[in-house]
Nucleic acid binder design. Structure first.
Lengths: 232, 232
DNA sequence: ACCTGAACACCGTTCAAGT
DNA sequence: ACCTGAACACCGTTCAAGT
C-alpha cells in the first residue's frame, strides 16, 4: 500500500511518535525521513524547518487536554484540574515544556487552555493585571516542576531511587557524589536520611511536591483575594 | 606572555564568558578551544566532556549568590531574598536553568544555597516531608519563570514589546500570528488589549508576575503553617 | 602530564535538478 | 506541486601520535 504523498499532519504525527519514544534529542530530520520513507529534506517543503515542526507538534498534543466546566465546578477545583492536566500532559510528552518555553509558538491548542485559565481566575474574582498574574503564577510552578521531571537527570534520579541495580557505574558514581556533597550540610544530610527512611521513589516524591505546591498556591491566591476585598 | 598550560579553572571561566555572551548554544568545544588558543580536543583532558564542563560552570556561578542571615531577618524575608537571589542569578546567566535541570550536577554551590533554604523553612516551622515540600515549591516557581525568560522566545517578546522596529520581518510575522490567535478568544483578547494600554515591556510584566508569585507562595506557605498548628 | 590532528558519526539546511 | 541527492557548515568525541 503505497502512500501517495507526504502531508503535514502525517509528518507531525510521526514527529510526535519519535519525540515521545526517544525524547527531544531523538528527533532529527534524517530519522524522521527514514521513518516516513522519504529523504530528510522532503520535510522542509511541508513544515519549513525543525523549529516550526516542533511548534506544530506542541500544538497538536495540547488538544489532548480536557478542560473543566468552570461554572459547574467552581474556580478552585477548576484551577486544580487545570494544573493537574498541564502536568499530566507534560509527563506524557516530556519534550513539551522545552518546546513551549523555547519557541514563540502561540498555538490554538495553548490559547484554548489559557482562555479557560482566564475564565477560572476571573470567576475567582481577579481583574485586570491581577488576573494576568493569577493565571501565570500556577503555570510557572507547573512549568518548573515539569522541567525538573522531563530531563535525563530525572530519569537518573528515578533509577537511583527505584532500583539502583539498573544504574550504570558512571551514573551510580554521580549519584554517590551528590550524596557526599549533601552529607556536608547538616539539614540536607538529615533530609536525605529521612527520605531514605521513607523509601519513596523519586517520582513519588515529585508527586507529593506537586500536590503540596498546588494547595499552597491556591491558598496563596485565596489570600490575595481576601486582601483585595478587604482593601476595597 | 605565553600561558604555560591550560587548567580547569581557566577553561571553566572561559566557558562562562562564552555562555553569558552567546547563550547555551553558543558554547562549542571548538569555539572554546579557539578562545583559549588550543585545540578543541585539549579540553577533554581537563574537563572530561561537555556535560561535565557545564556542570562545573553552573557550580561556579552559584558562588555569586549572597545568602540571607536567616535568624536575623526572619523566615519570610529570608525566603523572599532567596527567591529573588535565585531569579537574579538565572537572569545574569541565562543558560543556568537549563544546565541545572538537565544534568545531575549536585554541586557545592547549589548545596550551600539549598541548605540555607532548609534553614529558612525550618525556622518558619516546617518539619519532615513538609519541610522538603516547602523548600521545593518556591523553587519550582522560580525555575519555571526563569525558564520562560531565558529562551530565545523571551528575547523575541521583549523586542516586540519594547521596540518593534528592531524585529526582523520573520519575527514580526510570528508575533502577529500569535496576536491573531489570541484575538479569537474573548478573555485573551481583552487581556492583550489591556496589556497594550498599560504599555509595559515584556520584562516589566515578568517582574510583576514574579513579585505577585512570590507574595502568593509565601502567603500560601503561611496558610499551610496555620493549618498545621490548628490540627496539632 | 599535556596537547595536536585526523577521523568518525552525527547534525540542520540550501539548492539545483528531477518528475 | 512535490521530492531527491549532493553539498555546506557545523557539532561532540575518540584516539593514536607527539612532546
Amino acid at each position: 500500500m503505497a502512500r501517495e504523498t507526504l502531508n503535514r499532519e502525517q509528518i507531525v504525527r510521526a514527529a510526535i511518535e519519535l519525540l515521545d519514544a526517544e525524547g527531544i534529542d531523538g528527533l532529527s530530520m534524517r530519522k524522521l525521513g527514514q521513518k516516513l520513507g522519504s529523504a530528510a529534506t522532503a520535510m522542509y517543503w511541508h513544515v519549513g524547518n525543525k523549529e516550526n515542526l516542533l511548534v506544530l507538534a506542541a500544538d497538536e498534543v495540547w488538544s489532548e487536554v480536557r478542560l473543566p466546566d468552570v461554572p459547574a465546578v467552581g474556580w478552585r477545583t477548576a484551577a486544580r484540574e487545570l494544573m493537574y492536566a498541564a502536568r499530566e500532559l507534560c509527563d506524557r510528552h516530556r519534550w513539551l515544556v522545552r518546546v513551549i518555553t523555547t519557541y514563540v509558538g502561540y498555538s490554538d491548542g495553548m490559547a484554548r487552555f489559557q482562555e479557560c485559565a482566564y475564565e477560572t481566575f476571573e470567576t475567582a474574582g481577579f481583574r485586570d493585571a491581577d488576573l494576568d498574574w493569577a493565571v501565570s503564577t500556577p503555570f510557572m510552578f507547573v512549568t518548573g516542576l515539569a522541567f525538573m521531571t522531563s530531563t535525563e537527570a530525572a530519569e537518573v534520579k528515578e533509577r537511583a531511587s527505584r532500583n539502583p541495580a539498573a544504574q550504570s557505574e558512571e551514573e551510580a558514581a554521580v549519584v554517590a557524589q551528590a550524596q557526599a556533597i549533601a552529607a556536608k550540610y547538616p539539614r540536607l544530610a538529615a533530609s536525605g536520611e529521612a527520605q531514605a527512611r521513607r523509601g519513596e521513589s523519586f517520582s513519588e516524591q515529585v508527586d507529593e511536591v506537586f500536590a503540596f505546591g498546588v494547595r499552597t498556591i491556591l491558598d496563596g491566591l485565596e489570600a490575595r483575594l481576601g486582601a483585595r476585598s478587604d482593601s476595597v
